[in-house]
Amino acid sequence: MAVARILDLHLHLMDRQVEDRDHRLVCKVDDLELEFDGLGRPYVIAILVGPRAVGPRLGGRLGRWFAAIAARLATPAELLVPRIDFAEVTDIGSAITIARRADELRVAPLEAWVDRHIIDRIPGSTHEGE
């Protein structure tokens, strides 16, 4: 982080892969949340994740379906769109690295569901990767 550089939100942040501190793939930057300070300057405060974030950007009927299905499946505890606080970001390269581990973030409810109900039940699901 020694060299300052200019980042273009669209070019360098939007739709970029997010990795955790162990280089596990977490999600895409599906959308960003901005906030304005007293002088009207925008700040990026969070990475928004999942179909509810990307759906409106897709537009059209498919985009609405994406968002609607995800909203319908969300439990009451997941009322807000899954997000990663931008303060967690440690590096912006060909991927965006965050300081925590993927499973602590809880931004991928579908992954957890598929794992618990399908993949975990198939024998051999925990064998080592390479």
């Binding site: 892969q17 997010v18 596990r24 895409k28 992954e111």
Partner: peptide, 24 residues
């Protein structure tokens, strides 16, 4: 890769559950 999910055989199947579901 489009959705940014963990994929690949270099992790345990449980760590790339959605990827393995798509393959299945």
């Amino acid at each position: 890769q489009y959705f940014g999910w963990q994929w690949g055989k270099y992790v345990r199947p449980r760590q790339a559950a959605r990827f393995h579901l798509v393959v299945l």
